[in-house]
């Protein structure tokens, strides 16, 4: 499917879905899906294209989230600038730790990134004076809504954040799709296939792994910032181990190899728990079972599986 078609479908879905929303609550879920999808797109670049694992990307989400909380509070920085500062900080952090960490492979890389994520969460938890510790802290208002109101456009919080996260998601998907088809994306996919061969054709393997790591860190950071800004409150959970695992699971479930698969995986794993609350005590059980079944029968992920099925019946 062409890049523009994929983007058009995504944009159409984001624009049309609210027509089906029975209540304002659904805007919040939608915004949550988009925010998660943004981080997962980043991971799809790292995992799906460059073939490197990270179990610590919530650490970058944490950096992004707390940048938006701390920037206005301690530095008097505007929340929007804090988001950018957080993204830059995440990128630089990824650059610094990525260089030594990405020499590792497979399990070792997983454990090293895991360590990084836990480190960030611990710093946030323990620097009580700065971050409020485990209780979390309030986040300043972005201020864009007030601006819109002054211009005579009243828009509810849910709708506003649905729109903002949706637009950022489309932007993120557009960038990711461009990377996928660029020489950079091809180089990443090549080193995923064979590092030795990638080097013999002239690809600097270490630098492309690092690029993928930094790009995905920035995605996670922006995702964390948006989460903080729309919730107006943030706790260390955003940087926690469970959030890292959640992000990787979404990536793999949706189909790590494709950008739209990432969005799909994020949507399913964000919405499903909401639906399954009806099952009360069995929620986690059903969720786990679904994931096991998908991984056994559709190891490439949901979206690639579905699109292959459709193509086959289409013939």
């Amino acid at each position: 499917m062409s890049k523009w078609l994929q983007l058009a479908i995504l944009a159409a879905l984001i624009a049309a879905l609210p027509l089906l929303f029975p209540s304002g609550y659904y805007y919040r879920i939608g915004a949550l899906v988009f925010v998660n999808a943004l981080a997962v797109i980043g991971l799809a670049i790292l995992i799906g294209q460059a073939g490197q694992i990270s179990l610590g990307h919530a650490g970058f989400a944490g950096i992004g989230a707390y940048s938006c909380a701390l920037g206005p509070e301690w530095l008097g920085l505007h929340p929007a600038l804090s988001l950018l500062a957080g993204a830059a900080l995440s990128g630089v952090t990824a650059l610094l730790i990525g260089r030594p960490i990405l020499r590792l492979r497979g399990y070792y890389l997983a454990v090293a990134t895991l360590g990084f994520g836990i480190l960030v969460a611990m710093v946030i938890q323990n620097e009580r004076a700065l971050t409020g510790g485990p209780d979390g802290m309030a986040v300043a208002e972005l201020g864009l809504r007030d601006l819109l109101r002054d211009l005579g456009w009243r828009i509810g919080g849910g709708e506003f954040w649905y729109a903002v996260s949706g637009i950022v998601l489309i932007l993120g998907a557009w960038i990711a799709l461009n990377i996928f088809d660029s020489p950079t994306g091809r180089a990443m996919r090549a080193l995923h296939g064979s590092e030795v061969a990638a080097r013999t054709v002239g690809i600097d393997v270490a630098s492309y792994k690092l690029k993928a790591f930094v790009i995905s860190a920035v995605y996670a950071s922006v995702s964390g910032s948006l989460l903080a800004l729309q919730n107006r409150y943030i706790t260390p959970d955003v940087a926690g181990f469970l959030h890292s695992i959640e992000l990787v699971t979404m990536t793999v479930l949706g189909g790590a190899g494709s950008i739209m698969g990432a969005v799909f995986g994020a949507a399913i794993l964000t919405i499903l728990p909401q639906v399954l609350t009806a099952l009360a005590d069995y929620e986690q059980l059903v969720l786990g079972a679904i994931m096991i079944v998908v991984m056994i029968f559709m190891p490439q992920g949901l979206l690639p599986y579905i699109s292959r099925r459709l193509r086959r019946t289409g013939k």
């Binding site: 020489p183 091809r186 180089a187 996919r189 090549a190 995923h192 296939g193 064979s194 030795v196 061969a197 990638a198 013999t200 054709v201 002239g202 690809i203 190899g257």
Partner: peptide, 25 residues
């Protein structure tokens, strides 16, 4: 330029993408 042992083509990429990558440098 080396053609490495065990061929080491990029299996997940198309034939044409493999060739394009050959001209990477």
């Amino acid at each position: 330029t080396q053609s490495p042992e065990g061929r080491q083509i990029f299996t997940n990429l198309s034939v044409e993408e493999n060739l394009r990558l050959g001209a990477y440098s």
